[in-house]
Computed example of a mutant assay.
Amino acid sequence: MPVTLLGATEIRTLAAELDVTPTKKLGQNFVVDANTVRRIVQVAGVRAGERVVEVGPGLGSLTLAILEIGASVTAVEIDHRLAARLPETAAAHGVTAGALDVVDADALRVSDLPGEPTVLVANLPYNVSVPVLLHFLETFPALQRGVVMVQAEVGERLAAPPGSKVYGAPSVKAAWYGPWRLAGTVSRQVFWPVPNVDSVLVAFARDASPRGGDDERLRTFRIVDAAFQQRRKMLRQALAGVLGGTAAEATAVLETAGVAPTARGEELSVDDFQRIARAAALAA
């Protein structure tokens, strides 16, 4: 029997049965429009036979849309009631046994995923979207690509190029793993409850070769954080604390890296920050 999707009425009924009231604390806004979840799966290019990880499946709207095309899903859900009910909902909507694994855990702490997913598709809680994405990209190297729905402001920041007004530390850290792009807008009206922010789809693809090891990534991210904590200052001043302690020492490292000491963090690409980290390691 084919997999069927949840409708708005059934979603509200399910929530009532589970005594689930969408909360701002958990960033819960359930998608109640079948066309929207099918569109997300299409934008992600999910194919039959692929293993997808979904963060925050909630009542299962997007989960069923992924399963509908013949992919399998590892769903990570922090709400115990929702995690317990999801397999039952999936079975009632025609999902075959073994196609869905539910991990009842906080996505920020999960360190193992059944099935080694290669695709990430999620309607991410707005309050933790960037930390979750960075954690998953760092922890699960098998993830090759994905599409996530996030608050518009967050999505624009993730996909921002150097020099953009919204370019910042999240932009650089996301770019460490590969390119990101805005992949569409989502109407507020497809959610229950209707949020007071706009949403966008953001797509990413992991670079074929890792940019660097954990130590180099941590060094680079430390420099990124310092640069954007004082983003109005020139790098020779903003990075003094992490590049030797003085503006003169920072200047020497920056010149070795081929970066102008008078530049500001918002002008630098992830490659620039990585070169600074490597120059700093040599100077240490």
Score class of each variant (00 low, 15 high):
Pro2Gln: 06
Thr4Lys: 07
Gly7His: 13
Ala8Cys: 09
Ala8Ile: 03
Thr9Leu: 08
Ile11Met: 12
Leu18Phe: 11
Pro22Trp: 05
Lys25Met: 08
Leu26Gln: 09
Leu26Thr: 07
Gln28Arg: 09
Val32Ala: 13
Asn35Asp: 15
Val37Asp: 01
Arg39Lys: 14
Val43Phe: 11
Val43Gly: 07
Gly45Val: 03
Glu50Phe: 13
Val52Ile: 08
Val53Tyr: 02
Glu54Ala: 03
Pro57His: 07
Gly58Ser: 06
Leu62Pro: 07
Gly70Asp: 05
Gly70Asn: 08
Gly70Lys: 07
Ala83Met: 10
Leu86Ser: 09
Ala90Lys: 04
His93Trp: 11
Val95Gly: 09
Thr96Phe: 00
Ala97Gln: 12
Val103Asn: 06
Val103Asp: 05
Ala107His: 02
Leu108His: 06
Ser111Asp: 13
Asp112Gly: 00
Asp112Trp: 15
Pro114Arg: 10
Glu116Ser: 13
Thr118Asn: 08
Leu120Pro: 04
Tyr126Gly: 00
Asn127Leu: 05
Asn127Arg: 11
Pro131Glu: 13
Val132Thr: 15
Leu134Thr: 07
Phe136Glu: 02
Phe140Asp: 02
Pro141Asp: 06
Ala142Thr: 14
Met149Asp: 05
Met149Lys: 08
Glu153Val: 10
Ala160Gln: 03
Val172Glu: 04
Gly178Gln: 01
Gly178Trp: 02
Pro179Tyr: 02
Leu182Asp: 01
Ser187Arg: 14
Arg188Gln: 15
Val190His: 01
Val194Asn: 10
Asp198Tyr: 03
Phe204Met: 01
Ala208Ser: 15
Asp214Asn: 09
Asp214Gln: 13
Asp214Arg: 14
Asp215Trp: 00
Glu216Asp: 11
Thr220Leu: 13
Ile223Arg: 09
Val224Thr: 04
Val224Gly: 03
Phe228Arg: 12
Gln230Ile: 06
Ala238Gln: 07
Leu239Glu: 04
Gly241Asn: 14
Gly245Asn: 11
Thr246Trp: 03
Val253Leu: 04
Thr256Val: 07
Gly258Leu: 01
Pro261Arg: 09
Gly265Arg: 03
Glu266Leu: 11
Glu267Arg: 14
Ser269Ala: 10
Asp271Glu: 14
Ala277Pro: 10
Ala279Asn: 07
Leu282Arg: 14
Leu282Cys: 00
Ala283Ile: 08
Ala284Cys: 11
Ala284Gly: 15
